[in-house]
Nucleic acid binder design. Structure first.
Length: 429
RNA sequence: GUGAGCGUAGCUCAACGGUUAGAGCACUGGACUGUGGCUCCAGGGGUUGAGGGUUCGAAUCCCUCCGUUCACCCCA
């Protein structure tokens, strides 16, 4: 009557990233860091959790994220904490807390790391997912918006993202957005009968979201309603027009998408998404916008800002297939018998200290098996130590890529192999 | 939170309600008693997601639960 111990499984929506996939993650991290730093951004690392209040204030009550997607818990001091669902609010918090910027200067930071939202997983959507994000604080000019979009388009070209598209919109500022919101809601109120049930709820809670409903009837009705762009105030319109001019100057293709309404409250003026139509329902792999009111909202001095986040899982899905396997490198010692094994251990230790990848079999397998292992693990050289070699004070060094082998006196083995590896690497490069 | 599809070996998948649930890949060993890749041979691996029901008989049909995938919603 033994209780069967259940295997403890991972948490739903929080997938493992296995060794075979890590190379691609590193590839985009390295590429992103390089581009971001070339554009003047510095890395910042904020904690994975914050006081719940930070996100409620920053993202906004009534948004889906705050209302039903946050991982919130009480810590032992009875303080409500939340696993970060996004990166902007924490960065702004840190910015204010440490006075990261002196008045009038531009502060550019980026982050890479996991975010947490309690949603039902589906293609391109997870409960723990990873973002590469950046925030630029302190400049209101549309030139900064253009630079951000240039950065992203350059990054996606560098990473060879296939067929990406930039969607652009402006949702106005504190003066024109409420006006538009009012006009739009009023217009939809008159057409209530034609709206889907979801949109009836949206009409109450956040009418602008009707704009990106996918139901045909709602789309048609929204098309007749006032559009955000024709409702912009003079300053917002000028900002948007300037941005478009700069994008043309920088030769960045975009299309205006007036249905682009983002789900976080803090956005003002410019909003954008980078879309890959091949991705399925969750086809936006990067998104962001301007948030000129957020810093004051969080108790800081009036400070304009703009930021974006790239969904790494979705970016990964947009990348070309991985290139052929890694080059052969390192040394695998093939030993026969105890004495040879001990010699192998010492040589492997020394090779590792010299900075080489090196290993040997610890299960006393047959020579054939050890050779198979060396081949499977892509070692560049096999260092064969058998009775014949020990008797002669030599080792057999076999080139696994080309098949040739030679005898090397034991005292010279390490030097010979380190040199051989250098040459092999130079040849590959 | 709602809906639909799918759960069979480590992976990808077979098996009209009817013998002992199979194949490819992977893994281990051998052919080659000290040499990888190619080939051939052999071997280990399964409570068919779990529980219940129908039936002489269930991987197969029904119910419940769990997991997973996709979609809605929302967003990266």
């Amino acid at each position: 009557m033994r209780e069967v111990q259940p295997v403890i499984k991972g948490v739903r929506g929080a997938p493992d990233i296995l060794p075979a996939e890590v190379g691609r993650w590193r590839q985009i991290e390295v590429g992103a860091r390089r581009v971001l730093e070339n554009y003047g951004y510095q890395e910042i690392r904020t904690p994975m959790f914050e006081r719940t209040e930070l996100f409620v204030r920053g993202i906004g009550e009534g948004t889906d994220i705050v209302d039903k997607q946050m991982y919130t818990f009480e810590d032992r001091g009875h303080e409500s904490l939340t696993l970060r669902p996004e990166g902007t609010a924490p960065v702004v918090r840190a910015y204010l807390e440490h006075g990261l910027v002196t008045k009038g200067s531009l502060c550019k930071v980026y982050y890479i790391g996991p975010m947490f939202r309690h949603e039902r997983p589906q293609a391109g959507r997870f409960r723990q997912f990873h973002q590469i994000g950046a925030e630029a604080l302190g400049v209101e000019d549309a030139a900064l918006d253009a630079e951000v979009l240039d950065l992203l388009s350059h990054l996606f070209d560098t990473l060879e993202v296939a067929g990406w598209q930039l969607h652009l919109n402006s949702i106005g500022c504190e003066t024109c957005r409420p006006v538009f919101r009012e006009r739009f809601a009023l217009s939809m109120l008159g057409k209530k009968a034609g709206l889907c049930p979801d949109c009836l709820v949206r009409l109450e809670r956040n009418p602008l979201r009707i704009l990106d409903c996918k139901v045909e009837g709602c789309r048609a009705l929204a098309a007749q309603a006032p559009t955000p762009l024709e409702s912009l105030c003079g300053e917002c319109e000028a900002h948007f027009r300037k941005l478009q001019g700069l994008l043309q100057l920088l030769k960045i293709d975009y299309s205006i998408n007036q249905h682009l309404v983002r789900g976080l409250d803090y956005y003002t003026r410019t909003t954008f998404e980078f879309v890959n139509p091949a991705l399925g329902a969750q086809n936006a792999f990067a998104g962001g916008g301007r948030y000129d009111l957020l810093v004051t909202e969080m108790g800081g001095p009036p400070t304009p800002g703009i930021g974006f986040a790239i969904g790494m899982e979705r970016l990964l899905l947009s990348l070309p297939p991985e290139r052929p396997g890694e080059a052969w490198a390192g040394v695998f010692a093939v030993t026969m018998g105890e004495e040879a094994f001990h010699l192998g251990l010492r040589l492997v230790q020394e090779l590792r200290r010299q900075g080489l990848r090196a290993a040997l079999d610890m299960e006393r397998r047959s020579v054939k098996s050890q050779m198979r292992l060396a081949h499977k693990e892509r070692y560049r050289h096999a260092l064969i130590l058998g009775d014949d070699e020990l008797r002669a004070g030599m080792a057999t060094v076999k080139d696994m890529a080309h098949g040739g082998q030679e005898q090397v006196p034991l005292p010279e083995v390490v030097e010979r192999l380190t040199r051989g590896e250098d040459q092999a690497q130079q040849k590959e490069a």
